[in-house]
Amino acid sequence: MSDDCLRLLRQHRFDLDRAADGHVEPVRLASGGSLEAVAGSDTGGTYLGCADGSLL
């Protein structure tokens, strides 16, 4: 994950600690690429980092 993405996550109200728990159900990209839970939102969503550095 790029430094820019991490900076944006830290500037907004995201729950970075929730990333340690992962996503509530298994998720994967259709291409088979890996995903890593990096933060949670205040509405219960999960932000996932892709192998290419993009954020989902």
Score class of each variant (00 low, 15 high):
residue 1 M to E: 14
residue 1 M to K: 15
residue 1 M to L: 15
residue 2 S to I: 10
residue 2 S to G: 12
residue 2 S to K: 15
residue 3 D to N: 04
residue 3 D to L: 03
residue 3 D to Q: 04
residue 4 D to H: 13
residue 5 C to E: 15
residue 5 C to D: 13
residue 6 L to K: 13
residue 6 L to F: 09
residue 7 R to G: 09
residue 8 L to Y: 10
residue 8 L to I: 11
residue 8 L to E: 11
residue 8 L to T: 07
residue 9 L to C: 11
residue 9 L to V: 13
residue 9 L to R: 08
residue 9 L to K: 12
residue 9 L to H: 07
residue 10 R to A: 15
residue 10 R to M: 11
residue 10 R to F: 09
residue 11 Q to I: 14
residue 12 H to W: 09
residue 12 H to Y: 13
residue 14 F to K: 09
residue 14 F to P: 07
residue 14 F to E: 08
residue 14 F to W: 14
residue 15 D to R: 13
residue 16 L to F: 09
residue 16 L to P: 11
residue 16 L to D: 13
residue 17 D to V: 07
residue 17 D to K: 09
residue 17 D to N: 10
residue 17 D to R: 12
residue 18 R to N: 03
residue 19 A to E: 00
residue 19 A to W: 01
residue 20 A to R: 13
residue 20 A to W: 04
residue 21 D to G: 03
residue 22 G to N: 03
residue 22 G to P: 03
residue 22 G to V: 04
residue 23 H to V: 04
residue 24 V to G: 08
residue 24 V to L: 08
residue 26 P to S: 05
residue 26 P to K: 06
residue 28 R to W: 01
residue 29 L to C: 11
residue 29 L to T: 07
residue 29 L to W: 06
residue 29 L to Y: 05
residue 30 A to W: 07
residue 31 S to D: 03
residue 31 S to K: 01
residue 32 G to W: 02
residue 32 G to Y: 00
residue 32 G to L: 00
residue 33 G to I: 13
residue 33 G to H: 15
residue 33 G to V: 08
residue 33 G to W: 13
residue 33 G to Y: 12
residue 34 S to P: 05
residue 34 S to V: 07
residue 34 S to H: 07
residue 34 S to K: 09
residue 35 L to N: 00
residue 36 E to K: 02
residue 36 E to I: 01
residue 37 A to Q: 00
residue 37 A to W: 01
residue 37 A to P: 14
residue 37 A to Y: 03
residue 37 A to C: 07
residue 38 V to T: 04
residue 38 V to P: 03
residue 40 G to L: 04
residue 40 G to H: 05
residue 40 G to C: 05
residue 40 G to V: 04
residue 41 S to H: 14
residue 41 S to N: 15
residue 41 S to F: 11
residue 42 D to L: 12
residue 42 D to H: 07
residue 43 T to P: 00
residue 43 T to E: 08
residue 43 T to S: 06
residue 44 G to Q: 00
residue 44 G to K: 03
residue 44 G to I: 01
residue 44 G to S: 00
residue 44 G to W: 02
residue 44 G to L: 00
residue 45 G to R: 08
residue 45 G to S: 04
residue 45 G to A: 10
residue 45 G to V: 04
residue 45 G to E: 05
residue 46 T to L: 10
residue 46 T to A: 12
residue 47 Y to L: 13
residue 48 L to Q: 09
residue 48 L to P: 12
residue 48 L to H: 11
residue 49 G to H: 03
residue 49 G to L: 05
residue 49 G to P: 02
residue 50 C to M: 12
residue 50 C to H: 09
residue 51 A to V: 11
residue 51 A to K: 12
residue 52 D to A: 03
residue 52 D to Y: 06
residue 52 D to F: 06
residue 54 S to T: 14
residue 54 S to R: 11
residue 54 S to H: 10
residue 55 L to T: 08
residue 55 L to G: 07
residue 55 L to S: 08
residue 55 L to D: 06
residue 55 L to V: 15
residue 55 L to C: 14
residue 56 L to C: 06
residue 56 L to I: 02
